[in-house]
Design a binder for these strands. Structure first.
Lengths: 134, 134
DNA sequence: ATATGATATGTTATATTATAACACTTTTTA
DNA sequence: TAAAAAGTGTTATAATATAACATATCATAT
């Protein structure tokens, strides 16, 4: 394994392409359904591609929705920590830049005598577009 | 439905008792296994009790672990937002008091023109006890 | 250029987590 | 005490994810 490998395999690229086109996070079996025409037939092929994409930081999992989303940031170093704004009305997800958040959580952790390594943050609410529509 | 009903049913109390005794978050089927001697035989009975306990704020779900934990706070108003410190070594979970966190997230959200309603925060790291053991 | 080791693939089967549907019972309250 | 609301027990099934194994591909060091 090279660090932050740039060369993706066919399956990985196929899954990533689909996620990048999507405006919403997708579930694994929704991904499977969409790419069956491209020769991917089994759940494991999807999960393996997702595992790798998550490992290299191209994809993040939204735990509370069992869904996956392509990373919006160019060179995301964050294969582990993630922070999202999730619209309860339209399901759109925005990824927050994490530097200040990580620092804040590290500080909060110290108060509990806890050594911070990473985090998941999922903020629910109403996005700009949906606020305006109301 | 009364607000913050205090009277639990048998099933609800059984599930809550088990969670309160546990030092770690438990999975639904682990709960089921443990309380079969008390007459609870099917997953649905566990999930229904959990749903109710979560609704009234006595139990929280840890999304990234598909696990459930009893609330540590006396009168937790937080049936929705949760913040945890999760030890990667021993799996122990500490719940963070949420007031300052909620305020911080609400402020962060405003910057993205997003109306905050609730959040899940899961911080991973090494707890006090495990740090000392090393 | 080729043997080696690491990584990925395809496939079948199965484990884990969670909900649907329905008939019935208990509790609450007007 | 009738009606409404909430909870129960049960069977079946949906949705999410991994195990195991044989094979294939790729990187790279000799």
């Amino acid at each position: 394994m090279t660090l932050a490998s740039e060369k993706l395999t066919n399956n990985q690229q196929t899954v990533l392409d689909l996620l990048e086109k999507s405006k919403e996070p997708l579930k694994a079996y929704a991904i499977l359904f969409d790419i069956q025409k491209k020769g991917i037939k089994a759940p494991l092929q999807v999960y393996r591609a997702l595992d790798k994409l998550i490992e290299i930081g191209k994809v993040h999992k939204i735990e509370s929705k069992n869904s996956y989303i392509a990373c919006e940031h160019k060179n995301c170093d964050s294969s582990t920590s993630t922070s999202f704004l999730i619209c309860e009305t339209c399901d759109q997800v925005t990824e927050l830049k994490k530097k200040n958040l990580s620092e804040y959580f590290a500080k909060q952790s110290v108060q509990a005598n806890f050594k911070y390594t990473k985090h998941n943050l999922e903020i629910y609410g109403v996005c700009k577009d949906c606020k305006n529509k109301k």
